[in-house]
Design a protein around this nucleic acid. Structure first.
Lengths: 203, 203
DNA sequence: GGCTAAAAGTGTACTGAGTCCAGAAATGCC
DNA sequence: GGCATTTCTGGACTCAGTACACTTTTAGCC
């Protein structure tokens, strides 16, 4: 993210660290791998690691983080009439971008990673972030405060549904059907209820 | 939880540690308080702390943990016909037990605690645990596997809704209406959709 | 070439949570 | 008194994450 061309150029690319980490996680599990081991393999100092990542757990979820980034941006961009329908289409659109090669390690290699509390906890942070994105979107479209209960209910429930879809998709193994279908099936369970509640007089 | 009367009797009660912690959290925020400070004030050694609690964050959520314990037990006990209606009534029953004096510190004193990632993360673990309880209950009643996607969707969405209700309730401040109403309003947004999806042929 | 500013990387020391474990202290029972 | 059992303690350890001063590499400018 260098703005100008001035200054020392990056050599320790994010990618190198991510790759080294992925290798080590598969060899020794997530919690069995220390940041020192990762930086050693990547040929980078420990301090540099923290220039690129805020936490060790970021290495597990970068695909998901990027997806949520996309989601957040798309939510700002889109401006169709029904917010719920928009949300649905944005979600599916982003899901369509996710192919086999971008399944998060933490989900597919669930067994290998050891379903540590650590791993789960860092995943939950992503779900919560997504809930917040949903909530903000709905709040804005429906002129409700961000901390409105219905807004939070909708955001949380949606994020929970999406998380379940991700997990089911990842667990499906090689040859899995596209993520899109999973998302649609899960989200459609609760979207109608949310739409009804958000409709004027639905309170 | 001593089974027999034999052995050294407990002196450091859980309660003493909880109280010392609550004081310190309000004085210095959650993250500004170390376990050493807590054990010092409680007059207990650091090692003893970990005899009673698995983590510092357990001190923030014991009310919630107990509520989820009740929920889990109640789910096992109840055996009515419609699982969704049962879930709803169990939830409301347990909510009715929560009065003003049992609002979790982490939620009411949200500002004082500093909305640290730490605090949020440990709260998310509780939401996830609740989701699992819901999921197990639904799975059993509907003869579905625990990792069935619809089961997870339902569990996660419900837990998300309940979490939103808790937060809204805690934020409402002194004189807040009973938790029960919050739970009902939030859960009823999504329960119909779940019920429909779970109904035979609703897949 | 040398100087400077800026960005990237390094080294080191620190805090604090959580783990481990051996052993001390307090009890009931014989 | 001895004995098993439980609680409590002390100390050493690992590791994530923070802070900060310092060095290195580049571009641009003179």
């Amino acid at each position: 993210m260098r703005s100008t061309g001035v200054g020392r150029p990056k050599v320790a690319s994010r990618q190198i660290i991510e790759d080294a980490a992925a290798e080590l996680f598969l060899e020794n599990t997530y919690s069995g791998t220390t940041i020192d081991q990762i930086t050693n393999r990547a040929g980078v100092s420990r301090a540099t690691f923290f220039n690129y990542f805020d936490a060790k757990s970021d290495l597990l979820w970068f695909e998901v983080d990027r997806a949520i980034d996309s989601l957040s941006e798309a939510c700002v961009r889109e401006a169709s009439a029904s917010s719920v329908a928009t949300l649905r289409s944005v979600l599916l659109e982003i899901a369509a971008d996710f192919d086999e090669r971008r399944v998060p390690l933490a989900l597919t290699q669930h067994e290998v990673m050891g379903a540590t509390d650590e791993v789960m906890q860092s995943g939950l942070v992503r779900v919560a972030r997504e809930a917040k994105v949903f909530g903000s979107f709905i709040a804005e479209r429906h002129r409700r405060p961000e901390d409105d209960m219905l807004v939070c209910v909708a955001g949380n429930a949606l994020a929970g549904a999406v998380a379940a879809a991700w997990v089911a998709w990842a667990r499906a193994g090689i040859g899995r059907a596209p993520l899109e279908g999973y998302i649609r099936d899960s989200v459609d369970v609760i979207l109608p209820g949310i739409e009804a509640a958000l409709a004027p007089g639905g309170d």
